[in-house]
Design a protein around this nucleic acid. Structure first.
Lengths: 115, 115
DNA sequence: TTAGTATATAGGCATATGCTTATATGCGCA
DNA sequence: TGCGCATATAAGCATATGCCTATATACTAA
């Protein structure tokens, strides 16, 4: 088994910068456990839909998350083929789970993605 | 042995934001192996002394690094009592060592800290 | 005390960031 | 086709960030 290739400082700093925003970091922590769509994040963060879309777009642009259309919705998930996936995952697993957000979403009947 | 307490999203995002800057991330990666003073960073990054001081200050302000005066110099090092130390360390160990910077510093006769 | 070196702080400036509202695009269904 | 919901994009604005130069402070050693 080959040694794991170290991520460049350049790419790591780009990923970490995105993770340095509280909203995005929470999104990622949620995605570590459950796939989500934009409208769910809008509900969770009580933030405008364009704001959520922009956060999601930044993470998608560098390959940190990936999208999959499911009918009317576009479901986002962590991209395990991302070069920095191991690093990201090791960070997220040190953060508290955000299940309460999902729970509230379900209680409000706003949960969309079902996988 | 107690389970490790998870770091809050809030504190983690603050730390990650600082690590999202390429200069600071490189500084931290260097500090993971060698203590350094401001004037060494000035030499390494070819950046003005106030810029270096400001980067260092931000990291010191949240407790990520600590300082120790040694005569004329103030030597900075990773603060292993920092709440997020484990997370930071696990990130840094996934990044390539920056020994070439230290090597060049020594070659130029600009290495200061000797510990 | 005075000069020299190291570091910190203040102030200014250009650019980046995160949010908003307005509008466009894409898909599902009657 | 046309309406409704989901998402994306555009434009604008306030604040944050990172750099610089100028200057202040702190320590060493002559």
């Amino acid at each position: 088994m080959l040694a794991k290739e170290a991520m460049s400082i350049d790419k790591a700093s780009t990923a970490l910068k995105l993770m340095g925003d509280k909203t995005r970091l929470t999104m990622l922590r949620i995605l570590a456990d459950h796939d989500c769509c934009v409208c769910e994040f809008v509900e969770i963060f009580q933030m405008s839909q364009p704001s959520v879309s922009q956060h999601v777009r930044k993470m998608k642009d560098i390959g940190m998350i990936k999208e999959q259309r499911k009918g009317q919705w576009i479901v986002y998930s962590l991209n395990d083929s991302f070069e920095g996936y191991d690093m990201i995952h090791s960070i997220l697993e040190q953060l508290p789970a955000q299940d309460h957000h999902l729970k509230q979403l379900i209680e409000k009947g706003k949960r969309v993605s079902c996988n």
